[in-house]
Amino acid sequence: MGEFNELNHIHLDILKEIGNIGAGNAATSLSNLLDKKVEMSVPVVNIVSFDEMMEQAGGSEDVQAAVFVQMMGATSGSMFFVLDPEDADQFVSLLIGEPGSSILDEGDNEIAVSAFVELGNILTGSYLRALSDFTQLNVYQSVPTVSIDMVGAMLSQGLLQTSMVSDQVIMIETLLHDVEGTKSDIRGHFFLLPDPDAFTTIFKALGVNDHE
């Protein structure tokens, strides 16, 4: 599907539902892991230019912590879990039970970083498992990797396949927030960027023609 403007409201609702069940499953996993309540927002599906996507993620120079995985198997795409480095530190502190842990600490951050990778692994894994169950497509994920850098530099990795087909990208965004027991409101964003061919596969799997 090269022309994203062929998507109608049924398609958009399906993509929203993917964001909903994916992030919902991830929120449940996180809640079980931390034994705390976790809220999530209504998913947003945006068809935006590459620059607009970076703006929505906070601006391409904004420094964020990101976990990146590739979705592979019956369909493909890129998935990011993105949050402020300070919020990542709060997660990590909760997870390893040591307040003040930081993924930014020079030298002594190995445990914090591996805890953050594990957090990302659980969250993206739960999200994609829900997607897989919902679509009945056999989807798995690559080993997660982490980067703390400019948003534009990191998210552009997820745009490469799309850029061969279009100047716009479909971004399925869901927000996790209000994690119980944290000092400030942690906000973590899921960005799912299906590859261009993934849309046809997903719609077909759900019995919806991609040209209604």
Binding site: D51, S60, G152, A153, M154, S156, L160, D167
Partner: peptide, 23 residues
């Protein structure tokens, strides 16, 4: 200059692009 874009300047203008990763 945005992603996948290009532009041209003449002094004293300067030209900037942000968030280059693999780009």
């Amino acid at each position: 200059v945005g992603i996948a874009d290009l532009n041209l300047v003449k002094a004293p203008q300067t030209i900037i692009t942000s968030g280059l990763g693999s780009c």
